[in-house]
Design a protein around this nucleic acid. Structure first.
Lengths: 190, 190
DNA sequence: GTGATTTTGTGACGAATGTCACAGGTCATT
DNA sequence: AATGACCTGTGACATTCGTCACAAAATCAC
């Protein structure tokens, strides 16, 4: 849990007392490659702190996979809408590599938060980070072309390119695999 | 402040004591049409609860306006990244009509939140709603075509279409004004 | 009401993208 | 070495989209 503790301290002041209260809400869990963290139709009752490996969230529409997010070490993966409102998830989260996560149980987390404001504040900060990132990616599509979106990812999130295949990245960038391949080619020629 | 109070109660349990603590952090403020709530380069130290009228957030890139969000009555408008991290805003928020907002002052809000967990919880829930919406719109671009995005807005957010002009909506949907006009035409013919 | 301004519609044309099809490459397993 | 699964590149072609230009319609200010 060392990485998680560092992560928490980077977000907010957190006493030993809060940590002791939080611990019962946490379970370390291993996922095999292609194992689901969350399936479409389930209600998401967990936050997944990614300790090692990575996972992705994706819709499956008419049999076609549409990737909507990648989550690496030190990220929190969840369906914020399902987690917050108790609605069924419309997408899946699946391990892309063997993955180790620290799972926050929703009910136990809320119990703990009632006993320590620091935990409530931690929750707020986690959600804030999540919102910032969503906003960032949402705006990419409104202000940039496909090529510019690729360049943005290359400069700001190079680790995605190193670990995620072109085919996987394509739907995340909102273009077809072939188009992404050609965008790359265009740029290496110029 | 009646609308705001209803809004708060819809989000979380909120005692009179919390309300009294929160009140000093709030100021009702009127904005004229085309008046800025937030300008590019400023740090965002406020949450704007929209009581009447509406506003939009937009980037201005090479002189071209790119709308990234519309905020109507009972929405919270802010730059979550700037507000949370104290960074300069990269976009503007401007009133599209005469607008009445209740402005949450960041410092006073944080002071109040220290004294009442309910205020901290309210903050978490506001951010959660914000994150849900960002995620929703972000995913639109990854799973839908321009036409499908328009249809999504038509069914889930018809008030946007009623109040926002086609030209304004276009950049929000990530297409040109002309293309949006033609998408409409295609659909009315079929 | 009238003129000015803004908004919307539309034609033309080039650029970008999606789709289908197939070839070659990489990698792990046997 | 042979196999199969997966990933990447590329050609062909149709579709969609952006851009420029201009006209029509709606809205606003006076």
């Amino acid at each position: 849990m060392n990485n998680l503790l560092k992560y928490i301290h980077s977000l907010t002041a957190f006493s030993d007392k809060s940590w002791k209260l939080l611990k019962p809400a946490l379970i370390r869990k291993e996922f095999k490659k292609n194992e689901f963290l969350l399936r479409e139709g389930q209600v998401c009752n967990s936050l997944f702190y990614i300790d090692e490996g990575y996972c992705k969230s994706y819709y499956e529409i008419d049999g076609v996979v549409k990737n909507i997010g990648f989550f690496f070490e030190n990220d929190i993966a969840t369906n914020i809408n399902s987690f917050g409102n108790g609605l069924k998830s419309e997408f899946n989260i699946i391990a892309c590599e063997p993955l180790t996560a620290v799972v926050f149980d929703k009910n136990k987390l809320f119990q703990a938060a009632k006993q320590a404001v620091e935990i409530e504040t931690l929750g707020r900060n986690c959600i804030r980070l999540f919102a910032s990132k969503q906003e960032e990616f949402s705006n990419l599509f409104k202000i940039y072309s496909a090529q510019e979106r690729l360049e943005y990812i290359e400069t700001k999130y190079p680790e995605i390119l190193q670990r995620v295949s072109l085919s996987q990245l394509a739907s995340f960038l909102g273009v077809s695999r072939e188009t992404l391949s050609r965008i790359r080619k265009r740029r290496t020629l110029s």
